[in-house]
Each structure stands twice: as structure tokens, then as C-alpha cells.
Amino acid sequence: MKVIMSLLFFDMAFWFYLATMILYFGYWIFRKEWLGQAATVIAIISTFAISMMLVFRTKESGHAPFSNLYESMAFFVWITSIAYLIMEFKYKIKVVGAFVMSIAFIAMVATSQLPYRFQDIQPLNPALQSIWFELHVFSAFIGYSGFGLAFGMALMYLIKARFEERKTSNFLIDRFPASAMLDELSYKSVAWGFIFFTLGALILGAVWANKAWGTYWSWDPKETWSLITWFVYAAYLHARITRGWRGKKAAYVAVFGFLSTIFLYWGVSFVLPGLHAYASQ
């Protein structure tokens, strides 16, 4: 099957995301307003490019553009970009862009390094031909993106909180939003992520498994890692309201949660065997 247009748009998006990341860093470091505006414009163009990649991928493959690692990574970048842009317009916190767009660009690099067979379009095996599968992945990836944003802001929080505590000034760190704001936004991202993750990865995944294999839960490694990740973010939500845990410790849990998400997404597919191992086939 022909996969020309989607690959073309992917390559374009790759360079646009690199430019986006550099511009956000430039804005952060050199404090030039025009750099910030340029960063936002290029971020929108990048998002458009990756959108076109997904549209052409759907057209070329004839199925939803998230049925293997290559497609789903591009999809992750797409959702993360949109979520970030919404946040930027709502809260006017462009310095966060340097962190979030780094995550997006790293995802693009990881995607481009995947073996060639992932870029090729494979017809769907019988188990994957289900609307529940599509909803499952779609919703789960919104969850992943929420966790990704929360991770970026939790890292910023940990840095910012340290400087605020010591009352020291640093021309880079001073540009961060206040730690209370970072904590709040990180929490919001987890909240959005947690809802879609619970709905997508766990509930819709269970509905699909029940339709396809006749059992909604089978402790398959991917399922178990979803549950592990769910436990970690449930712990985060409880830590935030527990005396002695709110603030820094909770932020560490959010960081830890995203590491768990990355393993759930990449590690399980390549390292552990199970029903979801088709991702690596």
C-alpha cells in the first residue's frame, strides 16, 4: 500500500517540532516577546502538519490512525500539542512550552527511530477490528497526554519550589509560573488524564477484551501495567490531600506516574509477552 503522503507530513512535522522546541527555549532564555509569538505560530503549524499526517495515514490504511506504535506515537504528539495549546491560550504560560514541546519532540525522535516495518501499513488482525478497540486507544492516549503534561509541570514545580524555599533568584527559574500555579495545572492535567485513562485504558479496554476474548480482565502484562499506572495516579490524587505528602512528594509521584506510563506504552510491548505483544510484531 502507498504510504507516501503520511511519511512526507511526518518528516515535515519532525522539523517543525524541532523548531518549536528551540523557539520556546529561546523565548524562555532570551525573554523576547517575538520569540514567544513565533514559538506559538510554529507550534500551531507543527500540530497542523501532524494532523495532516494522521489524516493521510487514515486514508492510506483505511483504519483509525493508532493501530501500531508508529501511528499511536504520532497520535500522542497530536493530542499533547492540542492540549498544550489550549492551556497556553487559557493560562498564558509560555515557559511551560519549552518543557512540553521537548516531550513532544522526544516522542517524534523516538517514533522516527522505530524500525521501518512500523511505518508500513499492516492490515488489522481479527481482534483489532472493533469500534471498542478504536475508542479504547483514542481515550487511553488522551490519558497519556494528560500525564505527559502533568509530568512536565511537576518537574518545573520541583525546580521552582526548591528556589522559592531558598528564596534564591535565578534569571531562568524566575520565569517559571509560581509553584502554586504549577501544582494546580499539574493537578488539572492529571485530572483530565486520569478520567480518560480510566475510561480508555481500563474500562473501554475491558469492554473490548470482553467482546473479543470473553473476559474483561486477564492480568495480561499490559492490563496489569495499566492498573499499576492507575494505582500510582490514584496515589497522587490522595497524596495531594494528605498532610506531609502534598507539594513535593505528590509531584514526585506525578513524575513517577509518567515513567510508569512510558513503560506501559513502550516497555510492555517490547519486553513483556502477552496479548498486546502484537504491537512489536
Binding site: T224, W225, L227, I228, F231, V232, A234, A235, H238, A239, T242, W245, S260
Partner: peptide, 11 residues
């Protein structure tokens, strides 16, 4: 928190 982290670790 203890139970959630334990469940995660054992899983």
C-alpha cells in the same frame, strides 16, 4: 497510599 503503592509494586 501504603496500599496503593504496595498493590502497584506487587503487580
Amino acid at each position: 497510599l501504603f496500599v496503593l503503592f504496595s498493590l502497584a509494586a506487587f503487580s
